[in-house]
Amino acid sequence: MFRLEEITTFTGHNEAVWCVAWSPSGSLLASCSGDKTIRIWGKEDEKWVCKTVLTDGHSRTIRYISWSPCGQYLASASFDATVVIWSRKDGVFESIATLEGHENEVKAVNWSSSGSLIATCSRDKSVWIWEVTEDEEYECASVMSSHSQDVKHVTWHPHKEILASCSYDDTIKLYKEDNDDWTCFDTLTSHDSTVWKICFDQSGSRLASCGDDQTVKIWQEYVPGNEEGVLTKGNDSVWKCVCTLSGYHERSIYDICWNVETGHLVTACGDDAIRIFAEDSCSSKNEPKFNLVTTVTHAHAQDVNAVAWNPKIPTLLASCSDDTTIKLWRIIE
C-alpha cells in the first residue's frame, strides 16, 4: 500500500496559494499567490527555507508560474492581464520582460520543450503563442480564439511543438503550426463542465484532464495508420477518451499531475484532499485501468489548488491551498 507522509509546511504567503512549480533540476520550488508575490523555496543545510520573495511584478493575483526548460527563467501569469518573465542570475531574480496583450486575467503560462515558445491563456477566451527572439525580446506569434469561453490552462507536448488548452466551455483543444500560423486541429469533448487542468504524460501520447464535473479523464493518442484502426484525418493524430475516473472526488478537481518516473497521477481537489492513482498492472493501452492507491482527506484546511511531483525525486510531492500554505509530502510504499 501507499501512503503520503507530510514532510513540512511552508507558511509565508498571506493569501491563497494558486500554484507550485519545481525547477527542472528539482532543487527549487516556486509558489505564487493572491498576495501578488512569488516565493522561491529551497534547501539550506537539509532545511527547507524561503530563499527569496519576488514582489513588484504584478498588481493583482498571480495565478500561475512556470520554469523555462533550462531553469534560468520563470514566467508568471497574473490577473493584471500580464505575464512577467524573470531571469535568474547568481540566485537573484530580475524581471526582464512583460508580455502585454491579453484583455484581462491571464490564467496560465507555459514554455515549449525547446524553450523558444511560450503559450498563455486568458479569461478573454484567447490562447497566445509568444516567440522568444535572440535578443530576449518576446514577440506575439499567434492569437487563437478557438474557445468560446474563459481558457483555464495551456500546456505543451513534452517534446513536440503541439499545444493543448482547456476551458470553461468544457472542451480541450489541440493546436499545431500550419502554413505560417497556428491552428486548432482537434477539439476533445467528454467533460460535462469546466476543464480545469490538462497534463501530458512523459511519452506525450497520453493526456490527463480534470474538471468541475469531478472526473479525471485519460485521453490516448492514435496516430495516422494506427493498428487499432481508429480513423484519423490527414497527418494529424486523433485523441480518444479511453478512461474516466468518477466517484472518487467530492468537489471540483483543480489540478492533476503525472509522475514522470512512476506514472502515478496525483489530483488536487476542492474537497481539501489529495489523491493518488496508479495504473493497474493488467491495464491496456486502449482500455487503461487506474486504481486509487491513497487519499489524504484533510491534506489542507481548504481547497487544494495545485499539486506537483518533483522532477528528480519521484517520491517528493508539493501541494498548495486556499489555506495560504504549501506542503511537501513523501510517498511511502
Partner: peptide, 17 residues
Amino acid sequence: SGALQLTDLDDYITPSQ
C-alpha cells in the same frame, strides 16, 4: 475580424461580463 472579437465586440455575453 479577430481584433474585434477579442475586444468582445461579439454576439454573446460571457457569464462574468
